[in-house]
Design a binder for these strands. Structure first.
Lengths: 209, 209
DNA sequence: CAGTTTTTGTACTACATCGCATAAAATAGG
DNA sequence: CCTATTTTATGCGATGTAGTACAAAAACTG
């Protein structure tokens, strides 16, 4: 697919750029509401080229969010684990989340996965699997980070890391939904910071309960 | 629309039942993926009858979730405010939420509003308004209930009710999304209970910080 | 330069979908 | 029994959509 075959007519499109454009359409219109004509126009590729390059609509979406995951998501994850302080790491993580979910002008975007395919998840098993997979990745990410913090004594030793991870995931899900509803960056940051503050009140290491 | 005109051919459908059937289609398929033919088949009404009775697709959806709000949502709200104990009220509220979001057999449903129109909210201002309105109703509901509890001394007087309300809303958003991804009733209840427990740890009246 | 390979662009088929026009059916009133 | 009124049922036209067939175009290879 992306093999740089030296023979034949050179492709006039950049696969990565095309997938970015496709993801933009999905984020703006939603999954079902995005037609192959929309994708064709956005990528400046004719429909046959789209099929040849990526496959059908689901394949395109799948590959687009795959690339999205390899970039934005991996960057967030790295941020979360690279920062030694859990509190700082989480704060930075969610600051980046809010930035990713709220564009400057193009209108409300939300999350390219959570906000886009929720509607179709019930009917289409492949899409549901995609959504479930994204949810599980987020859960695991938070839990792993919390386990590290607990092992390092940064949070209380009796912390239920799974429950706290669920709350952090819920915050992310809520931010995605609110961004989709048009809530602005300032308000999203307020919600994120207030929630994080409350959570850390609960898991502070000194607090005996 | 629902005026019982005594003249003319009697209608063979029950408007409430038809809207219920329509909402079922939307919940299963998502908004964009649901066509008027689907709705026509589910309601057993011919398309012209659908138009005459409810209007276009958005009107049908709007009226369907209006009826849904008048029933399920109002029932949840009543439950939350009728129960004197905040903790019990919230527990019962979310137990009902989980029950509503997870069907027995028909596959994952999620929330008729949050899970269904998130995808289309970015592109369609009317749908975005619908989503924003639903979010705000939930926020206000939780905040009002928390304010009552704070006034009654049930939770700490310095509680940031807005922040706690945001967390409860986030829990609801997260449950809707997870239900949509296929998470079962037991796991959703576990998440809800664990999160509620953590939140109440934070707002307990005795806790000095 | 001729042949091969890959991409591109046009066109086509088949079908879904929306919204409405129009006639038939079913009831109440006179 | 006839008329007015309202709902139902059939069907039409225009457009959107998915997926593919086919030939032209543009590069490399020998």
């Amino acid at each position: 697919m992306t093999k740089p075959s030296s023979r034949g007519r050179p492709r006039q499109y950049d696969p990565e750029q095309a997938l970015d454009a496709a993801l933009g359409e999905f984020r703006r219109r939603g999954y079902s509401a995005t037609s192959l004509d929309h994708l064709s126009e956005a990528t400046k590729m004719a429909r046959p080229s789209l099929y040849a390059a990526f496959g059908n609509k689901f394949d395109i979406y799948h590959k687009a969010i795959g690339q999205y995951a390899d970039r934005s998501v991996a960057r967030r994850q790295q941020l979360l684990f690279a920062e030694p302080s859990l509190k700082k790491g989480i704060a930075e993580y969610f600051a980046l989340i809010v930035e990713t979910y709220t564009p400057d002008e193009d209108g409300p975007l939300g999350c390219a996965i959570l906000s886009v395919i929720s509607g179709e998840a019930a009917a289409d098993p492949a899409i549901r699997a995609e959504l479930a997979s994204a949810l599980e990745r987020t859960d695991t990410r938070f839990r792993d980070r919390l386990d590290i913090a607990r092992a390092g004594g940064e949070i209380a030793t009796d912390t239920d890391t799974r429950a706290v991870a669920d709350m952090l995931a819920a915050l992310q899900h809520s931010l995605a939904l609110r961004a989709r509803a048009g809530t602005g960056r300032a308000e999203l940051n307020r919600i994120a910071n207030a929630t994080i503050a409350l959570i850390f009140k609960t898991i502070a290491p000194g607090t005996k309960d």
